[in-house]
Simulated scan of single mutants.
Amino acid sequence: MTTTTDTVTTLGGSTVQHGPLNDRIYLMHLDAGDLPGLPDRLDALAEEKGYGKIFAKVPASAQGLFAARGYVTEACVPRFFQGREDGCFLAKYFDPARRLAEAGLGDVLAAARKKAACDPPADLPEGFSSSPATPADAPAIAGLYREVFATYPFPIHDPAYIARTMEENFRYVCVRSHDRIVAVSSSEMDAEAENVEMTDFATHPAFRGYGFAARLLAVMENAMQDAGMKTAFTICRAASYPVNITFARAGYAYAGTLVKNTNICGSFESMNVWYKPLA
């Protein structure tokens, strides 16, 4: 397992993640005050570091400015910001190999669409329960992530990172078998944009096949509606049948594919974006 992680920092008032692990820049939060110059600053950073891709999450009103600088739109989520303005997931490639998606992704998407909104999640089997995680759970959660993911775009293998995000804008939910955490997921809230990313799903290999991800997703959706979030979305592994089917069955709509976007489980993988209105 690599211990390399990328850096989250700021360019002006905007938040970016960048580094060699994902070989990219990720514009996580755009401050409109940084326009129109931010795309040029991102280009300069990518060229300085030799990154293969820039990935940007921006309001639709900024899409044209980025398109004029060579960005393409890979996904779009309606009413992503404050339940009003669409959100665009944009990409600019510096390494031609990063433009080439893996084979078979269309088959995964077709299989997921066949399962769209077909069944509610099953109840947990006897002996299992779901509950919010606390900082005391951080070592066990990080340990589970280490077992499931050889690499990951954020340092979820680190208990200190898990505990810190709990104090910020993340909420974690666990499935437990007695005192053991056997599955986990998190919701990352953007209070300003009133959207939430459903992410970091992991189930211990010995406990797969019980539908824990679907149950965790349902629990998180209820909590996020109560928290006032208007749109839920996920950026999930495009090659994974189970995770794409989980979101399609829960009523999420497909928004697009981010090509060779994320270093996860030891290699660069394309990621699908799915979304669902919560309000």
Rank of each mutant, 00 (worst) to 15 (best):
H18Y: 15
E192G: 08
G83V: 11
A101M: 12
D43A: 09
S129W: 06
A117S: 08
R208W: 01
D86F: 05
F233R: 05
A279E: 07
D31I: 10
A133G: 08
G228V: 13
K276E: 10
A227M: 05
V182G: 04
V8D: 07
G256P: 01
A91H: 05
L90Q: 09
F233Y: 15
D95F: 11
T2W: 09
F201R: 04
S240K: 08
V148A: 07
P132K: 10
L100D: 14
P242N: 03
A238G: 08
E188C: 05
P153Y: 04
E126F: 04
E167D: 14
A44C: 00
N272P: 09
L21G: 05
G13V: 09
L65I: 04
V77G: 06
S14C: 11
F212H: 05
Y145C: 08
A183N: 15
D190M: 05
F201Q: 08
S187I: 01
S131Y: 00
C265M: 14
W274S: 12
R176T: 02
A142W: 03
G50R: 07
G266D: 10
P159A: 05
A75E: 10
V16T: 09
A122I: 01
T2Q: 13
Y252K: 08
G19K: 06
Q82V: 14
Y172R: 09
P205I: 04
E194S: 14
V77I: 14
F154C: 01
G19Y: 07
T246G: 07
Y51N: 01
S177W: 07
T234C: 13
R79V: 02
E48A: 13
A214F: 00
A232I: 02
T151K: 02
V259S: 08
M166V: 15
E47W: 04
I54R: 02
Y252A: 10
Y145T: 02
R79Q: 11
K53M: 13
G19H: 02
T234Y: 01
K114C: 14
H157Y: 11
A227T: 03
K276L: 14
A191P: 01
R84L: 14
F66H: 09
D31H: 12
F170I: 00
R146F: 00
F233I: 01
R99H: 03
A193I: 02
D190W: 05
C174I: 06
E221Y: 05
D107L: 11
Y275D: 03
A56V: 10
P78Q: 11
A62N: 03
I156K: 08
G83Y: 04
E168C: 12
W274M: 13
P36S: 14
A103Y: 00
P96K: 07
F207M: 11
G64Q: 11
F128T: 03
A138W: 00
T15W: 01
A111G: 15
G33S: 12
A232L: 05
F89W: 13
Y172V: 11
H29P: 00
Y93M: 13
F128E: 02
F81N: 03
I245C: 14
A218N: 11
Y152R: 09
F80W: 10
R146L: 04
L124I: 06
A250S: 14
S131M: 06
V182C: 08
S186C: 12
G106N: 08
A193S: 15
L21I: 10
G106T: 04
P120K: 03
F233H: 09
A279P: 00
R176S: 13
A46R: 10
Y145R: 03
T10A: 04
S14M: 07
K230D: 10
D43L: 09
